[in-house]
């Protein structure tokens, strides 16, 4: 019985740690909640060259380290491309 409970709690813990977000319009999974700063580093994106929208609000650069991306969040990362 205790073994079953242990398995169940482990599974629950695992389920809790899978973070499903929407990144640039597509589903994206993280193994745990991370800061925006860490997300950019993981994606190998130079934070000086982009702007980030977090749940439809533009995020100031100063907030990248304090903003935690967690389950259900919507993140947009944009940069400049050629245009007229």
């Amino acid at each position: 019985m205790s073994r079953v409970l242990w398995r169940f709690s482990a599974l629950l813990q695992y389920a809790q740690e899978i973070v499903k977000i929407t990144l640039n319009g597509d589903p994206f999974e993280l193994s745990r909640p991370v800061t925006v700063d860490a997300l950019l580093r993981r994606l190998e994106i130079d934070s000086r060259r982009v702007a980030v929208e977090y749940n439809l609000a533009v995020l100031k650069r100063a907030a990248y380290e304090s903003t935690i991306v967690s389950d259900g969040d919507k993140v947009e990362i944009v940069n400049f491309v050629g245009g007229g």
Partner: peptide
């Protein structure tokens, strides 16, 4: 110069 703003290609 003008520039456009688009999603980063993840």
């Amino acid at each position: 110069v003008t520039v456009a703003i688009r999603r980063v290609n993840i």
